[in-house]
Design a binder for these strands. Structure first.
Length: 990
RNA sequence: GCCCGGAUGGCGGAAUUGGUAGACGCGUUGGUCUCAAACACCAAUGAGGUUACACUCGUGCCGGUUCGACUCCGGCUCCGGGUACCA
């Protein structure tokens, strides 16, 4: 093949790879392993767009590079195939989500294969496949069978908890679960029935049922996680979300809060990502303090504070309106007041409460509690700035040290007490300093912050009025969704008994896994509000040990399947274990993980949690599963928008219309137009002068735009529907604004998140935004190699960047230029066996050096530049020498696998390029002889000299003088590199 | 508000980490080839200035350190992302 034809070359090699299973990988103890993982995609109906493959290309380059470096590389791909879009589609059309999903996956695979990735497709996983979710269910069961022992700081089988209860009762059992609630002795425990013991154990397991307040979305008929709710509406669809109490399966991720923080030290992730996770976990160290009620000293209000030291400055107590004690604390006099306030609060939507931070509101309950240190009387208020869901839902008000408390105190005329001598000006604002010594502070008067805190906590613990406590922002994760397209929860409920007992959750027998998702007639909730699984026939379990009951109707949330999938790739077809011990021992964990930053507080926390759990239970060896993580940036679609005059809503008489600028001329005088679009630079003018006109925003296909200027003629020519539209420019409006004839568009950058489950319903419509660039079209026209190079060339991997199709011509030219090192225009083979020259070797080795360094640093963009420079240099040198070209082709092969395989063969090699070794650069070809080649810039001659470390000052000076240069030394400098300028002054040394 | 990150030509972006700012590519302009186009090739392309050189200015803004600053330090402005009455 002497003619460059990317279509034939790519087809040929993709076929060869498939037939020979070139990229199939097996355990091979003779080689070091390397595991490269992409965050697997949710197969959306829209198929891949140009932004998706960015990360995949980067990992593919890295995988191929590592393979050439002698590693046994695991580089798999699969699909996170449970998810809402398929279910929504099923609700609308009645088509089974499995079918939609299957179709979408087929599209994805064919698109991915066209780009030439070196995945081992035999290891593909799909989370919605029963063979896969069998093990998701199994992990759920393991979590259910475990509790978190704070003493050993790991998860243990529930049996060890039973043993501890047997020995000591609740005494000495350190756990994170309900540890303050239950209290019994070993004797009492022994007296409990098995069912009672089981009931108690349910409170300690890592998956547990809880009456949680959840985000319920009536329109979607399901519960949403906090990250699925944005600004009080559902992230998908934007429907209203209300707070509702429901019994929910929960995951005790809070047990791992500390380890999720400390584990970050083990991994090579970006600081910003680590920071995000730390903030999300929100560890705050402080104390729990009990304030007894004045009316009933047995009853206490607990507050969490990070500043116990300010306890003597407490001048009021605030409860969340939802706090359970509010009703009993309210005195008859205040009853109406409080009830009004609560009603008021409930009326305000989440959005109002959040956006309206500044307004101070609250109500007095009429009751008082007692400051346990000063013995002072403290009035109890309620206010919506205190959140029921954080801490204890109660706050001690210290107006001198906290701005919100200060605002509250000032607004309601409560006293502001100075507690530190260093506090200044607390009459105008709070001062949260920790400096200075305490005043007005009883037992800590005169002390500093540290001693005071220690003393207070010791005192509280001694007198049982409080204790040191670490609080987290992180909540336990709701692990259930009231929807169909997810993993069924392998749990049944024992039948209720007449005395109100029963109805306890039990795991199904492990032998009955997978619990397969049943068929239903519709994918909507049932009439009485039960989840879709309520529609299934025989959704009931009969235990082989006798007994049984109705199966759980909720399914698992989207993140279940993605929280362990990297292990499945290690041994994708195992039906005895989630992955064999041998496979896990060999592959260990992921060396390089690449995906979008939007998973920072979702997937990347949950999956770390599951990994740690599996490690605790001895199934996997590593505390962290993703050693290096890179967040690739997004490729932004560019939308070009036009302003269309809304004739349908604009009041219009003929006179009005005639007065609209541009309109009269374009619409009336020239009768062919039916609509008017205004240039973006006119909008301000029109809005000012015709405030009653309304506009809608129209997407213009980007191929008819040149940046933000419309190519009106071709748009009209190629798109019939634009024929009747008048595009009004500044110049088109009388003579008033005659300064520009261009029709300007509004440019908008649209983020296209590449993700597991973040494909929103509205985003599906991006086809209609005319901003989607389909990779298939690009690959067809320019070839996969060009596409791969261009995506890398666009900019740094981790940055967001706008897509510009025009730029791809440059990389396309590069590939053709490369080809012409082998064949001339007439198809004549040019490659010779001649010895390379010094310059040729230098060009090659410079590139080898740069490219290896760049790949190690993930700077793929600059290495593409180096390739271009190298090929340009070799072209200029007319270098067609085999020894040079062979090495060039090998180092280029990770980036452009098809064309390099072809060229490799053309060079006379029978084996595949994949078995080659990545060339090592030879520094001797790079030595710069600066004296022979002075560089001339702007008429100045400057020379950079590199000296061996052992060269003395005198030797350097001699050298410089011999060459008619001037050199000035800096005091105390050690020569490493010298810049000299002839006959002028000199720069020196570092 | 708080926490991260960023700002370099018409555009995407380079700059060996303090040493010739603008690599590489796109776009634009001029030219060669062609009946013409496509492809390809050559040249120019930060701004001002000049016939051309010279020269001057120039990495968001103000100041500092240094022989030398896109790079380091102090103070701002704007943009992007995350998060939010978190006690």
């Amino acid at each position: 093949m002497s003619e460059f034809n990317h279509r034939e070359i790519e087809k040929k090699w993709q076929q060869v790879w498939e037939e020979n299973q070139t990229y199939k990988v097996e355990i091979d103890h003779s080689k070091p392993k390397y595991y490269v993982l992409d965050m697997f995609p949710y197969p959306s109906g829209a198929g891949l767009h140009v932004g998706h493959p960015l990360g995949y290309i980067a990992t593919d380059i890295y995988s191929r590079y590592k393979r050439l470096k002698g590693f046994n590389v695991l580089h798999p791909m699969g699909f996170d195939s449970f998810g809402l879009p398929a279910e929504q589609y099923a609700i609308q059309t009645g088509q089974h989500p499995a079918i939609t999903t299957e179709n979408n996956i087929t599209t994805y695979i064919s698109q991915l294969k066209k780009i030439g990735f070196c995945y081992d497709w035999s290891r593909e996983v799909r989370t919605s496949d029963a063979k896969y979710y069998k093990w998701t269910q199994w992990i759920f069961m393991e979590l259910f069978r475990s509790w978190y022992n704070k003493e050993s700081d790991k998860a243990e089988p529930i049996e060890t908890l039973y043993a501890k209860f047997e020995q000591n009762g609740t005494f000495d059992v350190k756990t994170v679960a309900d540890d303050d609630v239950l209290s019994f002795t070993a004797e009492e425990w022994k007296g409990y029935s098995e069912t009672e013991k089981y009931k108690i154990s349910l409170k300690y397991r890592l998956t547990f049922l809880s009456d949680a307040v959840v985000n319920f979305c009536p329109a979607l008929g399901m519960v949403l996680s906090n990250d699925e709710v944005k600004d009080g509406v559902s992230e998908r669809g934007g429907y209203p979300v209300i707070q509702k109490k429901m019994q929910q399966w929960m995951m005790r991720i809070t047990a791992y809060a500390d380890r999720l923080i400390s584990g970050l030290d083990l991994v090579d992730w970006s600081d910003s990502l680590k920071e995000q996770q730390k903030n999300w976990i929100g560890r705050s160290v402080g104390a729990m303090v009990k304030f007894a009620l004045e009316s009933n000293t047995d009853s206490k209000i607990e507050v969490f504070t990070t500043r116990v030291d300010t306890i003597y400055g407490v001048s009021f107590m605030v409860l969340a309106p939802e706090h359970e004690l509010v009703a009993s604390l309210t005195t008859p006099v205040q009853k109406e007041n409080i009830e009004n306030y609560i009603a008021e609060t409930q009326k305000r939507s989440e959005l109002d409460r959040v956006s309206d931070v500044r307004t101070v509101s609250g109500a007095f309950t009429g009751s008082y509690c007692v400051n346990p240190f000063s013995g002072e009387q403290v009035p109890i208020w309620i206010a919506d700035y205190v959140l029921a869901g954080y801490g204890t839902g109660a706050v001690m008000g210290v107006p001198s040290g906290d701005q919100r408390d200060w605002n509250f105190a000032t607004h309601f005329g409560l006293p502001i007490v100075q507690i530190l001598d260093s506090q200044t000006d607390i009459t105008t604002q709070a001062d949260s300093t920790k400096e200075g010594n305490y005043v007005n502070s009883g037992m800590i008067d005169g002390l500093g912050y540290k001693e005071a805190t220690t003393k207070l906590i010791a005192f509280m613990e001694e007198n049982n009025i409080g204790k040191a406590k670490v609080n987290y922002r992180l909540r336990d994760a709701v692990f259930a969704r009231q929807r169909y397209w997810g993993e069924p929860v392998p749990v049944f409920f024992s039948p209720p008994t007449p005395d109100g007992g029963g109805n306890l959750p039990y795991l199904i027998d492990e032998k009955d896994l997978p619990l397969v998702l049943p068929e239903v007639d519709k994918y909507l909730p049932t009439e009485d509000g039960e989840p879709p699984l309520g529609r299934a026939d025989n959704w009931h379990y009969s235990s082989p040990n006798g007994g049984g009951g109705g199966l759980e109707l909720s399914t698992m949330p989207g993140w279940a399947g993605s929280s362990w999938y990297w292990f499945r790739y290690m041994d994708a077809h195992n039906d005895q274990e989630f992955a064999s011990k041998e496979a896990i021992d060999y592959w260990q964990n992921v060396d390089l993980y690449l995906g979008g930053t939007e998973h920072a507080t979702g997937h990347l926390l949950y999956s770390r949690f599951w990994n740690k759990f599996l490690k605790d239970r001895g199934y996997v060896p590593q505390e962290e599963y993703a050693m290096k993580l890179i967040n690739q940036g997004m490729i932004m679609g560019v939308s070009q928008l036009a302003y269309r005059l809304k004739l349908e809503t604009t009041e219009k008489t003929d006179d009005d219309l005639f007065n609209i600028p541009g309109y009269a001329h374009e619409f009336y005088v020239d009768n062919r137009y039916k609509q008017v679009y205004y240039s973006a630079d006119l909008i301000d003018y029109i809005k000012e002068n015709y405030p009653n006109l309304e506009f809608s925003i129209i997407h213009i296909p980007i191929e008819y735009t040149d940046n933000n200027i419309l190519d009106e003629d071709s748009l009209r020519y190629f798109r019939g529907r634009y024929e009747n539209i008048a595009f009004v420019t500044r110049g088109g409006i009388n003579a008033l604004l005659k300064e520009n004839e261009n029709y300007f568009l509004e440019t908008a950058h649209i983020h296209e998140p590449r993700s597991f489950k973040t494909v929103s319903l509205t985003e599906k419509m991006s086809k209609s935004k005319y901003n989607v660039v389909n990779p298939d079209t690009i690959v067809e026209k320019y070839g996969a190699d060009t596409f791969r190079l261009y995506e890398m060339f666009l900019g740094p991997l981790t940055e967001s960047k706008p897509w510009d199709t025009r730029g791809i011509e440059g990389t396309y030219r590069f590939i053709r230029k490369l080809w012409r090192l082998f064949y001339d225009q007439n198809g004549k083979y040019l490659v010779t066996d001649a010895e390379p020259t010094k310059e040729e070797l230098k060009a090659l080795h410079k590139t080898i050096k740069k490219v290896s360094e760049d790949i190690e640093d993930f700077s793929f963009n600059t290495s593409v530049s180096s390739f271009m420079i190298c090929v340009n240099e070799l072209s200029d040198l007319k270098c067609h020498k085999k020894v040079i070209l062979e090495k060039l082709v090998v180092i280029l092969s990770p980036y452009a696998p098809h064309v390099t395989e072809e060229l490799w063969q053309i060079l006379g090699n029978s084996d595949s390029i994949t078995v080659q070794e990545f060339p090592i650069f030879d520094a001797k070809h790079l030595i710069e002889d600066s004296f022979e080649y002075p560089i001339q810039i702007n008429g100045k001659v400057r020379v950079t000299l590199n000296f061996p470390a052992d060269m003395t000052k005198e030797e350097i000076e001699k050298l410089v003088m011999e060459n008619d240069l001037v050199l000035k030394w800096l005091e105390g400098a050690t020569p490493k590199k010298v810049i000299v300028v002839p006959k002028r002054i000199v720069n020196v040394v570092i």
